[in-house]
Design a protein around this nucleic acid. Sequence first.
DNA 1: CGGCCTAATCACCATCGAGTGACTTTGCCG
DNA 2: CGGCAAAGTCACTCGATGGTGATTAGGCCG
Lengths: 222, 222
Amino acid sequence: MTAHMTATAAEILETPAAPEKEQPVRDRAQTQARIFQAGRALLAEGGFRAFGVNAVARKAGCDKQLIYRYFGGLDGLVDAIGEDLAGWVTQHVPEDQGGRFLLTYGDLMERLAELYGDALRADPLMRRILVWELSESSPHIARMADARAKGIAQWIERMRGSLTPPKGGDTVALNAVVIAAVQQLVLAAETSGSFAGLPLKSQKEWARAVGAVARMARAAYV
Amino acid sequence: MTAHMTATAAEILETPAAPEKEQPVRDRAQTQARIFQAGRALLAEGGFRAFGVNAVARKAGCDKQLIYRYFGGLDGLVDAIGEDLAGWVTQHVPEDQGGRFLLTYGDLMERLAELYGDALRADPLMRRILVWELSESSPHIARMADARAKGIAQWIERMRGSLTPPKGGDTVALNAVVIAAVQQLVLAAETSGSFAGLPLKSQKEWARAVGAVARMARAAYV
DNA sequence: CGGCCTAATCACCATCGAGTGACTTTGCCG
DNA sequence: CGGCAAAGTCACTCGATGGTGATTAGGCCG
């Protein structure tokens, strides 16, 4: 609720969560980081259902009161986690060409689909947050979604280089569709292991899905 | 948990939820239907977060004990709702051609995307359940997802008539991608009102999104 | 050494959730 | 009319939750 005590994500992450000492006692920054990481872990493992003051405190191995003191409550903690994830796209979706030439705008989008999918599949926390976004709307969540949208836009901006988008195509909409498909498939893969009859468990199966997305992307961009 | 008392969805729906009498007292079928509808409504309105024995009983205007008696608990109620939704695709996604000719397989998929999107946008309950599917995996939920996948497959089967799928294309994967995109966009539209920079609030904005999906579908199927 | 600021914990509250057993009411049928 | 099974309600336990005020414990500095 109140944010007067809230520490920025950057401050917290300076201390690298210190796995060396279990209870270094009396180190505020350390404790703060422990709470922060506990929150992340809890969210990543159990989703927002398992996410609560008591649970976080238990996992962090400290009193829940400290969550209120250092983060101004659960909301503050969520904000901190969200802030930390603001630059997620730029941090987790690489900007290389994987040794291949991106000749058309379609190639570019194909590559984005591939990389975005991989990044998402490697990050349980982000997946949980995406589901969270779908299940309720709140200020924090909206901000995260916005940041991600901007990140994707920037990625495209930087990656496309001299490639020009197709003349008649509605690139914003087409991009959104590609990203949407990838996202839904990744999320569905986790819980149900398949989507609309398409199995999505093994790496090979995932490759098949990505292939389909790629085909559509390339085809759509003239 | 136990299912010995569980009534089938069909049985329940025979009684059309009787909005005429508020408290018809002492009518088991009626009460059962009230509980059933309360569960549906609660799920549709508040999602699975607001879904619980107490809440359902409150909404149904009866004692929660009856939920245990008539449905064998919350799980049983969920099962009943799920059963009722088993034929959702066939019931809610129409099988007409909207007065237009489906000349290619791509046209067919375009039409499916359109109709599936509309059906989903008109059904809050189904949307909630889709999100639910993404946030946890349970037997009920898996069954519902399977039923939906089958429904979609049947829809295509019946609609395609003499149209033949493209030779080289992986239709299963391509279809899954199209459906995935639509689904993700609909779900995102509800909570955040946009997706990856594409606004999704008004009907016009939605049409834009559908247009993009359609373009990709048509392009992908040769 | 002693005080003091602060990290951290303890003890507690109200509330809500699932779940259960005992109870009361009602309609029906002999 | 009497009883009996079914429909429905009540009252409670138990555990977990979010949230708060008072209290303890520890390091640092004069």
